[in-house]
Write a protein that binds this DNA or RNA. Structure first.
Length: 480
RNA sequence: GGCGCCGUAGCCAAGUGGUAAGGCCCGGGACUGCAAAUCCCGUAUGCAUCGGUUCGACUCCGAUCGGCGCCUCCA
């Protein structure tokens, strides 16, 4: 079945249902990384939120065409890649140096996505592969008198677009007051006009263009690639809140200036992440990349859960205590899954409120989806899972669920895991060594050799296998 | 100066006009050889503060205090 989801739209500042332009198919553009360094957990929060968004739509029965750009030409990339080159280095060698840096960090970024079980976009275009499209778009804006040339650079004339400021909800006067003047862009008609094409300065890699050697401005790549790969009417465009202005406002100016009509229906932005109550900053020593945390022994999936269990539009305070809570919460869900995979134990007397497990499950599923459909309310959706677990655990203690009921519950866990990717089905088989140890412990226990039984149990625990003795004498296990 | 957000138990957090979901942690009990897992019981007379509206407010309005964001590169 296909469900309709609602999301907060930055354009209107209201939660609105997402009605795809093409029924059942969502086009999604998300602003990707600038690949000049390791992604930090703040960046990754945004990508994790977008993964949640995408997986929720897919699990809700919609197709999603997702495009995420890889920004591989930009000031910081140039700064970090050109330092070792001589002043008279050729343009080819400058490009090669830039590409070496961006190739390296693109690969690392893609690994990070895998580590966090973030599904890769259907399109991952690199900006440098779309120069012709960007140049064409700028020419089109020029033809429409929305762009002008100054000394080899091209600027967007925001005075030409009435709706400029609609996304950030800024009026022109307010912008004038706050705008600062970039020293080397003083030649613009208005300080709030932004650059579409930057003329090359000495020491920078460049491309040929109708305006001479230069490189694209930051905003133009998203418009050009979004238009090229997803089309003239996008359902959703997303990024971090910091991109609302100027980046997304400028994307709207470029795309809608060229198209002459609305480009994106739903703008969705994820909030920031703080660390232990403070803004994340290298100077505060609280700046973490995924690699830093993994090196500290953090389970990346616990990080995924810690981030996704908070609402995406609220500032998230990352902490190691929160990470621990996430690990423990996951343990509870996974233990429940394991229990449902096994058989029920003999009941121990009457239970005060016998449930109809399938009805209870259906109720949990509805609450879960109502919460997710309401602007991705993950705290409430997860609460529906936890109360279900609590009720069914209690039920199963007294009147064991049938095999069929257990399978239905597992199907719901699969369904929710398709979104959260944190409690997957795991291989039921164990390797021979573990099997042998479990048997050795069973024998020791049967002969009341408690010391040996405990020793083997500890040994297994060190190997990541936790044993659980059941009432009927059998022994269960789980990874922990 | 302009625009906007947030303040709910030790920690995280939902709710947003009808009398406080959920998770983590913690205490007591059951089960167990001991554990683990699980179950049962308990844990905010109160939702930053002070006023107001209302039969009734954590939820609406106003003020105050505290924290944060954007207006400039930034997830």
């Amino acid at each position: 079945m296909r469900r309709t989801l609602s999301l907060f739209n930055t354009l209107t500042r209201k939660v609105e249902p997402v009605i795809p332009v093409q029924e059942g198919r969502i086009s999604l553009y998300t602003c990707g990384p600038t690949v000049y360094n390791y992604a930090h957990i703040g960046n990754l929060r945004t990508f994790l939120f977008q993964d949640l968004l995408k997986r929720t739509f897919r699990t809700a029965g919609l197709q999603v065409r997702h495009c995420m750009n890889i920004t591989d030409v930009e000031d910081k990339i140039i700064r970090d890649s050109q330092g070792a080159l001589p002043a008279d280095a050729s343009n080819d060698s400058r490009h090669a140096a830039m590409k070496a840096l961006t190739d390296r960090f693109t690969a690392i970024f893609l690994e990070d996505l895998d580590t966090l079980r973030i599904q890769k976009a259907d399109f991952l275009p690199r900006a440098t592969a779309y120069l012709p499209q960007m140049i064409r778009l700028i020419q089109d804006l020029e033809a429409k008198d929305l762009a002008y040339v100054r000394e080899g650079s091209v600027y967007y004339r925001i005075a030409g677009l009435p709706q400029y400021g609609c996304l950030a909800h800024l009026d022109r006067e307010g912008m004038q007051a706050g705008a600062s003047v970039d020293a080397d862009e003083y030649e613009r008609d208005s300080v709030t006009d932004f650059v579409l094409w930057k003329s090359a300065k000495p020491g920078e890699p460049w491309w040929d263009s109708p305006w001479g050697p230069g490189r694209p401005g930051w905003h133009i790549e998203c418009s050009a690639m979004g238009l090229e790969l997803l089309g003239e009417r996008l359902d959703i465009h997303s990024g971090g809140v910091d991109l609302i202005f100027p980046h997304h406002e400028n994307e709207i100016a470029q795309s809608e200036g060229s198209l002459g009509h609305r480009w994106v229906n739903h703008w969705v932005h994820g909030e920031f992440l703080m660390v232990e109550g403070q803004k994340m900053a290298k100077s505060l020593g609280n700046f973490f990349t995924l690699h830093d945390l993994v090196a500290k022994g953090v389970d990346p999936i616990a990080l995924r859960y810690a981030i996704q269990s908070n609402h995406y539009r609220k500032v998230l305070n990352f902490s190691f205590e929160g990470l621990r809570a996430a690990e423990n919460s996951l343990r509870r869900i996974r233990a429940f899954r394991k229990r449902m995979e096994g058989e029920g134990q003999a009941g121990s007397g009457p239970w005060k409120e016998t449930l109809e497990p399938l009805a209870r499950l259906g109720q949990a599923r509805e609450i879960f989806w109502a919460a997710m459909a309401d602007d991705l309310n993950t705290p409430e959706a997860l609460a529906a899972i936890f109360t279900l677990i609590s009720d069914l655990n209690a039920q199963d203690d007294h009147v064991a669920l049938t095999r069929e009921e257990r399978e239905e519950v597992l199907a719901f866990l699969d369904e929710t895991d398709a979104i959260f990717a944190a409690w997957p089905r795991e291989a039921l088989s164990l390797d021979a060594e573990v099997e042998a140890l479990i048997e050795a412990r069973r024998v020791a226990k049967a002969t009341r050799n408690w010391a040996e039984a405990d020793r083997v149990r500890d040994q297994l625990k060190a190997m990541g296998i936790v044993l659980e003795d059941r009432k009927d004498g059998t022994v269960g296990w789980r990874r922990g």
